[in-house]
């Protein structure tokens, strides 16, 4: 590993109880803890998940379930990230 580049982590997210963790993308982080925190910020900004795994080569690290409420609930109240939060006058099309 080069001194300057962080390793690449694959991110898996379980969107709902009862569903599988699903691969959503990747990111770079120096270690598993930061990879999980960055994955939370990058891939669950719209309450897309309740659990995260990050994988570097052969290792799998899962997010701490006891953190679930401070991990995911804060984005519940950020309704402005959804288009339906905005009023557009009648007759406006293609938006």
């Amino acid at each position: 590993m080069s001194n300057k580049e962080w390793p690449l982590w694959e991110v898996f997210i379980r969107s709902k109880q009862g569903l599988n963790h699903k691969h959503v993308g990747s990111l770079r982080a120096a270690d598993a803890t930061l990879a999980l925190e960055n994955a939370r910020d990058v891939y669950t900004r719209r309450s897309e998940g309740i659990s995260i795994w990050v994988v570097e080569s052969n290792y799998i690290h899962a997010s701490d379930p006891s953190d679930a409420d401070s991990f995911f609930e804060p984005s519940d109240t950020k309704v402005y990230r959804h288009p339906t939060f905005y009023e557009v006058p009648d007759g406006v099309k293609h938006m």
């Binding site: 959503v24 993308g25 719209r46 905005y86």
Partner: peptide
């Protein structure tokens, strides 16, 4: 697949801009 995710997020970008102009 990246584009599908991006497009979902983008639609609020255009609407918030238009709303601000309204």
């Amino acid at each position: 697949r990246g584009m599908v995710k991006i497009c979902k997020e983008e639609s609020f970008h255009q609407r918030q801009g238009y709303e601000s102009l309204v």
